[in-house]
Design a protein around this nucleic acid. Structure first.
Lengths: 142, 142
DNA sequence: TTTAGTGCAAAAGTTTTGCATGGTC
DNA sequence: GACCATGCAAAACTTTTGCACTAAA
């Protein structure tokens, strides 16, 4: 079965990230996979409840925090006082965000490292990481 | 006098940004100028009070919001549920943030535009803007 | 059996809002 | 006088925490 196989692979994925794959966590992860863009803990909780899943809001918060620490999800904070989460690829990447429909696309290309090291050094820094968020208009909204 | 001249220039700066330069707003702006890094509304309010300025917390929040909309300050949200503000140069720039002491340095160099346009186009986007935040260790912390 | 995850409700914290008052144009 | 800014306190909201309970290693 399709679902069965996916559940199994989620299982392995969480385990590989050092996260114990409990039923609730798998449910949260599955819900994240259904959403191409980013969502808040509250929204996610609402969807899971609507789907019949019975879990507390606190669990969703704790789970997302756990996922974020394990590097399984990225966090965004466009709006003050509210964090959004999104399941993302595991390798280094950046985000292209449509200003109009909020669609998020991952960008794997990154040729910044050389430039980055140089610029950082100019200011006495050693760069250890970076985050680039690109705003734009997607094909559909243009 | 130095202070007098600065007050006058702040006055013009706010006016130019379409913000009415009231005494409180000038005080908030002056406090922002004293801080090289980013601060929360709460911290800023505390400092102003300690300095003898008598203004309400709500005013600080409203003022910072006004400044942000006018493009006079940048906002950061490293921590969920808390926004930081920082007076920044008016031209396009990026931030270099020390992971250890949280010092923030503005980086004026930005050679990304060509690369950015190309990468965005690959995904059907037209890039309109971008934000790059570089993590690293500053000279003192290294 | 010992550790880790979960539910529920309360608490903590930041930020926003309503409304009366005071300043500014 | 009309309009905008401010103070104060209450309200709204997101997020965290404590504790009892349950499931997993």
């Amino acid at each position: 079965m399709r679902a069965k196989r996916e559940e199994g692979s989620t299982d392995r994925l969480l385990r590989a990230a050092g996260v114990q794959p409990t039923p609730k966590r798998i449910a949260v992860f599955a819900e994240l996979m259904r959403e191409p863009d980013d969502v808040t803990a509250q929204t996610l909780h609402g969807r899971l409840r609507k789907r019949g899943e019975r879990l507390g809001l606190a669990t969703v918060y704790r789970t997302l925090q756990t996922f974020a620490e394990a590097g399984l999800v990225d966090t965004f904070s466009h709006n003050p006082g509210e964090v959004c989460y999104r399941r993302c690829g595991d390798e280094h990447h950046h985000h292209l965000v449509c200003s109009r429909c909020h669609r998020v696309v991952e960008v794997a290309e990154c040729g910044l490292d050389g430039w980055l090291a140089r610029v950082s050094a100019n200011h006495g820094f050693v760069a250890t990481g970076h985050r680039l968020e690109i705003d734009g208009l997607c094909g559909a909204c243009r």
